[in-house]
Design a protein around this nucleic acid. Structure first.
Lengths: 115, 115
DNA sequence: TCTACGTTTAACATGTGTGTCAAATAACAG
DNA sequence: CTGTTATTTGACACACATGTTAAACGTAGA
């Protein structure tokens, strides 16, 4: 029953997990852009960018609209809201129980790096 | 130069992109637990859970400490803070420009489901 | 020291993601 | 209609993620 939301979060976080896609979102935050424009700053091919855009669109993070020959992409907000809410739940929990947790952890954890 | 942070976000979002791992985080939010305890509610094997825990630890989302035979896992907060900050940047932008965007989008997007 | 328990590692199968280049589609201009 | 530009799709290659089972490791206790 919560499966639907769960999957939605997977798609959202999955889309956000790729640096190129986050870079694309950053570019779109400065205004909508065509695929060609979005491809320019990257060292990868246009088909690759096109696929990234498809992933972002599938996650509902952008929308696309054709104006003449150009297909412009623009940002959408809804999924981020959901993902942020999910994370806020944990952030709040963690902030609340941090002191207790922190003290507890310290006594077991000498260091975090290991071979 | 921002590459380091970028990679950190990839790891964080990547860890969050898996439903099993989010489920594990939800369980740990109710208190620390051993690998055996964390494996119980799932239909997958303990080695699989062990790997998920390793991913979560790699993302800094949990810490682990041995107490006797048991290896207990507990939540950490730092990476979520970073990821939330990243997303907040976009949420704010999107909220601000939502009206303008929304009107623009409506005229191009008849439906979001595909075959 | 031998045995049992809890957990991880090794080796492997398999599916999915990300990139490539070449060809196909879509809209526009002569 | 033909050609040009913008973008996507197809076919492939390769890497990585996730699951499995079997064996190894680490700690506790007889």
């Amino acid at each position: 029953m919560v499966k639907q939301l769960d999957d939605c979060l997977s798609v959202t976080f999955g889309a956000l997990a790729d640096p190129t896609r986050r870079e694309i979102l950053a570019m779109l935050a400065e205004g909508e852009a065509t695929v060609t424009e979005l491809t320019a700053p990257f060292a990868i091919s246009m088909p690759a960018i096109s696929r990234h855009l498809k992933v972002l669109e599938g996650a509902g993070l952008i929308t696309r609209s054709r104006s003449g020959q150009h297909l412009t992409s623009s940002l959408r907000s809804a999924p981020l809201q959901e993902a942020t809410e999910w994370m806020e739940r944990y952030r709040q929990f963690w902030s609340a129980s941090f002191d207790r947790l922190d003290a507890h952890l310290r006594q077991f954890q000498p260091g975090r790096e290991g071979p």
